[in-house]
Amino acid sequence: MTITKPVFDRLGFWLWVGAFLVVLGLALWSPNARSVVHIYKHGSEAFLSRQPLYQVEVAMGYLYAPAFAVLYVPLLKLGPYLGKLLWHMLGFGALTFAAMRQVRKLGGHEQTWLLSVGLFLALPVALAALRNGQATVLLTGACWFLTLSALEGRRSESFFWATLAIIAKPTAIIMLLLAGALRPRLIPALVLAVLVVLAIPYGFASTDYINAQYHDFFRMLTSMTIDPTGPFVPADFTAPFTRLGMTVPELDATIVRVVAGLLTLWLVLQFDRRLDPNISGLAIFLTAAFYMCVFNPRVEQNTYAMVSVPAGLSIALLWREKGAATVRWLLATLLFATGLTSIDSRLHDLFHPWLRPISISIIACVLIGWFWTRGRQKMPTAGAVAHG
C-alpha cells in the first residue's frame, strides 16, 4: 500500500469524475447513441397522451412503475439535451455521494485513498451503465443510502430513499425487505414509501387509465422468464448454462433464487450483529447488491454496475489489512478486467453474457467470506446490535 497510495490517493476519484464528464460530452454530442434514456422519454410521452406504457407479451421496452413516467416528465419537458444531462447527473451524483458517505462511515485516516481506489476499480464495470444513462445507477445510489439510513434508524431518510429506489426500479423491493428485516421499526415507513409510489400516478391521470397500467405492469412482472428464445438475454446465474446450450427449468431457477434469498437475509442479519457498525453497512449492501445482480431474473450485463462500487470499496478496505496480498491483487485485477471485456465487440461477443455472473460471484463470495471472518474475530468484544 505504501507504493500505491501516493498514486491513487486522488487519481482514481478524478478518473471517475473525468470519465463521467466524457460521458456527459458524448450524451450532448449524440443524445440517442448508446442510450436507454429514450425508453424513459417514450414512457413519459405515452403517459401524457394516455397510451399504454407496457408491452406485456414481450416484456421488453418500458419496465418501470407508472410513477417513473410521471416523475420523468419534468426532464422530458427540458428537452433532449438539458433533460438528459440532468438525468445523468442525478444518477451519478446519487451513486458517488453514497460511496462517499460509506467511506466516511468507515472512518480512518485514509478515506480519500479508499474512495479513490474503490471508484478506480469499479469504473470499467460501471462505465457502460453511466454512459447509457441506465436507471440502475440511480437505483444503486438510492439503495445504498437506504441501507445506511436504515442501519442508523433514520425514518425520514429511509422513507425518502426507499421511495426513490422503488421509482427507479421495482427490484428495489428486495432492499426494502432486507431493510425491514434489519430494522423492524422502519417497516411502517417502508410500507408508506411503497404506497406513495403506487399513489403518485393517480394525481396526474384518470383512475381507469392508471388501473389499466397497473394491471399490465403486474402482469409483465410475473411473466418474465428465462426463456432463451425470447428477445431478452438474461445475464444472471443462468447465463453460463444458457451459453453452453443448457436451459435451466424455470422451477429450478426459482428454487435457487428463493434459497439464495433466504441465505442473503441470514447473512445480512449476521453482519448487522457481528460486524462493527462502521463496516456493517458496506458488507450488507455488497451482499444485497450481489443477490440483486446474480439472482434477479431480469438482470443484464450493465446491471452489474450495482455491485461494482461496493465491491471496489471492499477490495480497497481489504487492501489496508496486513497479509492476503495475493487475494487482494487477484480480486482487484478480476474486477477491473471484467469491465474491460466490453471495450471491443469481439471480446463482448466472446464473454457476453456468461462472464460477469461468474467473475462477480467469485469476487463477492470472497469478500463476503472475508467480512464473515472479520466478524468472527470481533465477536468476543462486540456486543449484539438490536434489530429493532
Results as ranks from 00 to 15, higher is better:
Ile362Trp: 09
Trp329Arg: 15
Ala99Tyr: 01
Ala332Arg: 06
Arg101Glu: 05
Asn211Val: 04
Ala332Trp: 02
Leu251Val: 10
Ser49Asp: 14
Ala283Tyr: 05
Val259Lys: 06
Leu340Gln: 01
Val327Asn: 04
Asp272Val: 01
Arg298Met: 12
His348Arg: 10
Met292Ala: 15
Leu186Asn: 02
Leu275Asn: 09
Lys169Tyr: 07
Thr264Val: 00
Leu355Trp: 02
Pro201Leu: 11
Glu152His: 00
Leu114Val: 03
Leu106Pro: 04
Ala172Leu: 13
Leu78Gly: 10
Trp161Thr: 10
Pro80Ile: 01
Arg183His: 14
Met60His: 07
Ala59Ser: 12
Leu355Val: 00
Pro228Cys: 10
Tyr72Asp: 08
Gly133Phe: 02
Leu198Tyr: 15
Val56Glu: 13
Ala27Pro: 03
Phe8Trp: 14
Gln111Leu: 00
Ser30Trp: 15
Gly25Gln: 04
Val197Cys: 06
Phe204Glu: 10
Leu317Met: 06
Leu78Pro: 03
Leu114Phe: 01
Thr171Ile: 15
Leu121Gln: 02
Met60Tyr: 07
Ala165Arg: 08
Val22Gly: 09
Leu86Phe: 15
Leu331Ala: 07
Thr326Glu: 09
Gly369His: 06
Leu115Gln: 11
Val17Gln: 01
Trp144His: 10
Gln301Ser: 12
Thr303Gln: 05
Ala162Val: 10
Ser223Val: 14
Ala364Thr: 01
Arg273Ile: 05
Tyr214Asp: 02
Ala168Met: 03
Val233Cys: 02
Thr326Val: 10
Gly261Phe: 11
Ala179Val: 08
Val307Leu: 13
Leu263Gln: 09
Thr381Ala: 11
Leu195Thr: 11
Ala19Pro: 13
Tyr81Leu: 15
Trp87Cys: 12
Ala288Phe: 05
Leu335Phe: 06
Ala193Asp: 14
Ile360Val: 09
Val103Thr: 04
Ala235Ile: 12
Lys77Gln: 14
Asn302Cys: 07
His352Trp: 11
Trp161Gly: 12
Ile166Lys: 00
Leu347Glu: 08
Ser206Cys: 09
Val385Gly: 02
Phe204Thr: 11
Ser44Leu: 12
Ala179Lys: 04
Gly91Arg: 04
Pro234Val: 11
Val196Met: 07
Leu90Ala: 13
Pro66Ser: 05
Ile166Phe: 02
Gly18Asn: 00
Gly118Ala: 10
Leu95Glu: 02
Leu251His: 13
Ser116Gln: 10
Phe237Trp: 09
Arg183Gly: 11
Val125Gln: 04
Gln134Ala: 13
Ala19Phe: 09
Asn132Leu: 12
Ala386Lys: 00
Ala260Thr: 12
Ala193Arg: 13
Pro52Ala: 08
Trp372Asp: 08
Gln134Glu: 15
Arg356Ala: 11
Asp344Arg: 01
Ser345His: 10
Pro228Tyr: 12
Leu275Ser: 01
Trp266His: 13
Val125Thr: 06
Ile187Asp: 09
Val233Ala: 05
His42Ile: 08
Leu115Ser: 11
Thr338Asn: 10
Leu176Arg: 01
Ser149Ile: 05
Gln270Leu: 07
Arg155Val: 07
Leu313Trp: 03
Ala150Gly: 14
Trp266Val: 14
Trp113Val: 01
Leu76Ile: 10
Glu250His: 05
Ala239Pro: 09
Asp276Gln: 09
Thr303Leu: 02
